[in-house]
Nucleic acid binder design. Structure first.
Lengths: 355, 355
DNA sequence: CTATCAGATAAAAACGTTTTTATTCCGATT
DNA sequence: AATCGGAATAAAAACGTTTTTATCTGATAG
């Protein structure tokens, strides 16, 4: 009977008490030794560490969490859409999560994912995480020009890193792509190729990066001394359907574009689909430059010129910055704005047989 | 000074003790009242619930976790690849996570994501989750024909749901697609269209569903009284590059395929890219049938025939099943094998101008 | 009129840590 | 020889719950 109980005991994972009984030290000493406190003598520490290893001791996360108030979680806000036909939507999140996951790999933090359906939803979830301290840090993207999450988080001092920047002059950790520059460069390349009617398939104008891209788009025209074709800026969701519908509409205009700049690969695929239906050929009848979110543009037929965004790397940076921020580092030190690499796969100019 | 302390107090979120002081009941009664224990008198319960609402009381998850041993987390194992050029890899995980997230929305469970790099890695992570009870339940995909995770989890009684089935006759909760049937149907359709040399762009043969597809592929030939073109089965990862390389190789054979069945949209895009390079046209020179993982096949040029897998719905089922399993439901009751819907976008037969 | 019982609530213990405070021991200083 | 100081460790408290056990109050049965 007693033996039975003893062997049952054995099954349960060892706690700090087991270790105390086993080594003869008190639980306080055990805890300090394992946490690396300098007050415990070296031989003692060695003995305790050895015993911990021998018994396969693993600190109970729940006990630690209760005592320290930490959760050892990093939360990521992920957009979800259940609408049929929008399956590509948010596809790049696999990459982001993968990057963040890698960054957290060697830390004590686990990744928790919270789906949101709307901007308002995202704010509520962020607030709940802060209020209930459901996580020790937060990562999110889809930053609005005036994003209430950033105000709230900065004010509360809660550690976070955003993928994207809002338009307020606040100090916070962030990772971003230089969207203004990229849109400028893409547009300028097309203008240099002889295009004057250029369409921009853009995201929702509430999003900070959508505005950045409009800025770059306009600047390219301005610096070339041309009037920007603002009537050819379409904004909507990032779906393939939106890309297709926009291209069909724009190319049907009386004064249609001769080139298109696309927000991401999902919309690009839609645009290419539209061009196929209209029997127009990329590189011959019309030029397309796109952002590369999952790096498949090289396989489009024909391959098209893109800005390569190393999104998984950005994800890794997000994770790394969050770890450092949670460790108390100054957010002013934690900023990265990367310039995507232009990969020219087409000449993107008006060839001899056009116009 | 005392006033200051009082106002500080106010900031802290109320605990069960605050509620006790506020209502005059003991913490035990508070806890029971809020958990719905029948021993507490109705008026008492009402008063306590009212006070909880008034003070905005939210049970502290860490306290609950420590006491109950539960974590209120559902873990998902997600494959990650950091190799450049494999960015589409695992793209459907956005859909799965989105579905699971939706299923957990109204529960007390949070979603935690664990990236793995290899099958061995996935097993180790699963084991750690069980050993340290880092979660209350587990979801994973990429099931192997002989998957050690399933053996381990079944033996330990840990709640889990797999996306896919292994080939052992074990009882466990799962969601799957009828891959044998789908491969059979695709192949039979092509055979009916006059094809005899059919390629199968397949996944790693250790994966259970890769075997299922080979089974269905072979059966279609067998039932048509033909010899299966087993020499045209390619297996590899699910990348676009693999699709492209395989198609180039197969179509360069002395006795090349006249049709291809593709494992997913990523490989399909690669196959289409290869066909473009070779100047062969889908529906004219060669036919392609594919699995639809993110529903963009309709936008390929030309659109191709696919099996539509409602993957987000499967994700939702995974979440729902896990909740029920964690609530103690019999795993034998928790099984779903869905037949994907064939969406014919091409005739998929040998037209007059071929052969 | 007392013992019993049930119903309601309170008290206490427990979950596994970390952190603050207390104790012990020993060598050095007065 | 008594005291001090510091190093090492132990003890105790605390984090916020849930659950087991105890107490109290009336009512009912003997």
């Amino acid at each position: 009977m007693a033996e039975n109980k003893g062997s049952e005991r054995r099954e349960l994972s060892p706690t700090i008490k087991t270790l105390a009984a086993h080594t003869g030290y008190s639980i306080a000493t055990i805890s300090k030794a394992l946490r690396g406190s300098p007050v415990v003598a070296q031989p003692t520490r060695d003995a305790i560490v050895a015993a911990a290893r021998e018994l396969g001791y693993q600190a109970n996360a729940r006990g630690m969490a209760l005592r320290t108030g930490k959760t050892y979680r990093a939360a990521v806000l992920m957009p979800i859409t259940s609408a049929v036909g929008y399956e590509w939507d948010g596809v790049e999140y696999t990459q982001i999560l993968s990057g963040v996951s890698q960054a957290l790999e060697d830390s004590d933090y686990q990744l928790s994912v919270h789906g949101f359906r709307s901007f308002g939803d995202a704010f509520e979830i962020a607030r709940r995480i802060v209020d209930q301290s459901a996580a020790d840090g937060l990562i999110f993207s889809d930053v609005l020009a005036d994003d209430p999450r950033i105000d709230m988080l900065v004010e509360s001092g809660f550690p976070f890193v955003s993928l994207g920047r809002c338009r307020k002059p606040l100090v916070y950790a962030h990772v971003d792509v230089d969207n203004e520059w990229a849109a400028f460069t893409a547009t300028a390349r097309l203008i240099a190729g002889g295009h004057e009617r250029i369409a921009l398939i853009n995201a929702d104008r509430r999003l900070s990066y959508a505005l950045d891209r409009i800025d770059g788009f306009s600047r390219a025209f301005r610096e070339a001394g041309l009037a920007a074709s603002m009537d050819l800026v379409a904004d909507g969701d990032l779906s393939t359907r939106f890309g297709r519908d926009s291209a069909l509409r724009l190319l049907g205009l009386p004064n249609p574009p001769t080139a298109l700049v696309c927000i991401n690969e999902s919309t690009t695929l839609g645009v290419l689909s539209a061009l196929g239906s209209l029997e127009r050929r990329v590189g011959v009848d019309v030029d397309v430059i796109a952002y590369d979110d999952i790096n498949v543009s090289a396989y489009f037929t024909p391959p098209i010129t893109t800005f390569y965004q190393p999104i998984e790397l950005l994800g890794r940076k997000l994770g790394e910055f969050l770890l450092r921020r949670m460790a108390g580092e100054d957010p002013a030190e934690l900023a990265l704005v990367s310039r995507p690499e232009l990969i020219g796969r087409q000449p993107d100019n008006l060839g001899g047989n056009r116009r």
